[in-house]
Each structure stands twice: as C-alpha cells, then as structure tokens.
Amino acid sequence: MDNLENIAKEIRRDVIEMIFTAGSGHPGGSLSEIEILTALYFRIMKHDPENPAWSDRDRFILSKGHASPGFYAVLSKRGYFPRDEMWTFRKLGSRLQGHAHTGTPGVEMNSGSLGQGLSFAVGVALAANVDKKDYRVYALLGDGECDEGQIWEAAMSAAHYNLGNLTAFVDRNRIQNDRFTSEVMRLEPLAEKWSAFGWKVLEVDGHNIGQVLDAASAARNTRGCPTVIIAHTVKGKGVSFMENNPDFHGRAPNKDEYERALKELA
C-alpha cells in the first residue's frame, strides 16, 4: 500500500508538470481522481500495457474527459507510452489530446462532452455478455457530470440489463466548472439516487487506496446489478492552494504556483 501511495504522489507531480508545460488543462479533477486510477491500474484491473487491444482486458472508461492529465500520467507510469510524451500534452501533433481520445494507447473512448462515458461502458458490458467473456468494465464519472440526463438514462439501462460486470466510480469532489456542486445543481441525496436506479452503492474515502480496493472487490463479487462507488475526494488534492478551490478546475498554475505545488508534493 505504501508503494501505491508513493506512486500516487509521483503521478500528482507529473500532473502538475504536464499542465504547467502545456499552459492549460484541468488540475483540480485530475488530482482528485489519482488514488482511484492508481488502484485500478496497479491492482484491480486485468490489463496489458504491451497489448492495449487484448480482447480479454478489463476496460476503463474516463467519462470526465477533462481530467485527462491524471489519466495520462497513470497510463504512462504503467507503461502505455513513454514518459517524455507527457510533455507533449495539448500540443500540435501530440497523441495526448486536451480531452481523452482513442488515439492515445490505453484510452478506450473519446470524451470531453460530459455524460457520455457511462453509456459507452454499458455497451462494452453488454458486449461482454453477448460474447460470454468475463472481463469487467469500469467507468469514472465526475460529480458535476451527473447533472447530465444521459448519465441517468445509462444508469437505468445498466440496472435493467443486470450488468454486474459494470462498476462506476463517481469522483465526488464537490466542485464543478464554475462553483461548488451544491450551488450549481443540488446532487444530494446522490447515493439514494443511484440506489433508486437499481445500483448497489458503496461510499469510500477516494484518497484511501485500501478503501478503494475493498470497494472494488465488493463490486467484483456482486452479481446481477451494477455497482457505483461514490468516492469522496478533495478537488485539487495534494496542493494546498488548489484544494477545494473552484479556480483550479480548469486553469494551469503560473510559474510561482507551479514551483510551490511541486515543493508541496516533494
């Protein structure tokens, strides 16, 4: 576990470095998702960085596509593409686009328009059933993203088709683009909403890797219905002045902020 926590810290530094180098990007939601992604890619998922198209792999779908820096940093750390490529993020000709897309090794779907990833995940999970394969499907949603009606269309259909092979994480960092989620559009009671839609609901501290691993095991052992893991997180986690600060949803740190952030993450 110590090892995973160290990896998570290194990934946070890469996120800051990537967004500072690019001069734009979304640090807040990238920093809040790191433990979830680290747990998935370093422990939970069956996958092969040497063969991203392996047909029996578990699938991960980043629905909150703006949080691509956190995702790219994890993929690179896991060996999907060289470390140096991270510094091409958002630059012309790069495989690392502003929002996640399938041109990046290890990325399953295009995103950037909110609300679409869970439907895609439902399709992948249905395909597993049609093909009688036992791979699992994971999706990561933002909490602000749950304002999108399509999320709930997808949620209803996942329960209707008894997709026990599907697990969704909600990165409940309580901040969306403009402001706090409670100010923009009230989501609570969020757990009850998912439960009412027919999902098994688990809640964890999204920065506690042990809790994330335990919840993922519980999801794996659930039959007949999809599981949502509401991961309570801190937007901008790990950098004091980014934490709980809506200003860092979608802007890069300046030089001074960049240096202070790396010092805090040392």
Binding site: M109, S119, F120, A125, L126, Q150
Partner: peptide, 26 residues
Amino acid sequence: PERFFDFGPAEQNIMGVAAGLAASRK
C-alpha cells in the same frame, strides 16, 4: 433476443451504448 436491446426512448444513451458495442467489435 440475446442480440437485441431496447432502451426505451433514451436516444442519447442508445448512441453511447452502440459506440461501446462497436468498440467491442460488435
């Protein structure tokens, strides 16, 4: 019946699900 899926009038979801199926070589 095992290859037929009704989603109700939820066309946004239908398109996303179709994308996921296509990405899975259906």
